[in-house]
Design a protein around this nucleic acid. Structure first.
Lengths: 135, 135
DNA sequence: GTAATTGCAAAATGTTTGCAGATTC
DNA sequence: GAATCTGCAAACATTTTGCAATTAC
């Protein structure tokens, strides 16, 4: 099993505070893609002394340290998930907002193929793919 | 050649105002994916009597009427493009924000395949695909 | 003439930040 | 003890909205 977010937080030399411990725990236990408001609510259930500002600062720090990955699914809020999870992509139901995870080796190959065709170096750039279907 | 956005605006029975005419023109002439601020700037160059609020209201109306498509590429601003353009998907360079359009039949098939595998009905739901690459 | 549209300014949302006090190392 | 972190409230960015005046049909 992979290390917890807190383990990796310590390993990165980040200062461990009660708030960070709690936020890390919340994200370790989250199987979904919580936004900041949700993370704050879940953290507050454990320790009521956590402000939203701290959640914002912490997820940003964790993201910059590579512990979390930030996602934006088009609803104007950032969502976070453990960066050490197995790689996967997302399908969003635009009407309901439902987030569906999936893994597909073909899409990985395809993304690489398209980037190459467009003359893009995948090592130098981080690319995100946005696919839309006509209704 | 396809009808202009203004043509389709009229065809939908929407009231044609000077502002809507200008905003439609701006979007007809835009080959990129302008956000509201940019649309407003371009519209203001033609007619300085257009407020940002009107741009917001107009693009929302046009989107709800199917004249425009709204896109969110993860930078917190909505972008718009002509809905009647040939179908395509987007690749975003996360570092630079560059938007790269592409068409790939395989990705369409793949999206359908994945949706079906997950038990999703593509006719009933509008799905968007978010693909990320590990750095 | 009536209903819809506009501009303005205020409000609503999501996020960031300055600062004084508290905490980690 | 020095540097970092926190909470609070204010600031910020994007988008929405109430209202009175204007405009389309």
């Amino acid at each position: 099993m992979t290390k917890t977010i807190l383990n990796r937080c310590e390993a990165h030399g980040l200062r461990v505070t009660g708030q960070r411990r709690t936020i890390a725990q919340v994200l370790d236990e989250s199987a979904d893609h919580p936004d900041v408001e949700t993370i704050h609510a879940r953290a507050s259930a454990i320790d009521s002394n956590i402000s939203v500002a701290t959640v914002y600062r912490t997820v940003k720090l964790f993201e910059e340290s590579g512990l979390l990955e930030r996602r934006e699914f088009g609803d104007g809020r950032a969502r976070y998930e453990d960066a050490e999870r197995e790689h996967h992509d997302h399908l969003i139901d635009v009407q309901t907002g439902e987030v569906i995870e999936f893994v597909d080796p073909e899409i990985e190959a395809l993304q690489e193929k398209i980037a190459q065709r467009l003359g893009y170096d995948l090592k130098g750039h981080r690319l995100e793919l946005f696919g839309t279907r006509r209704k």
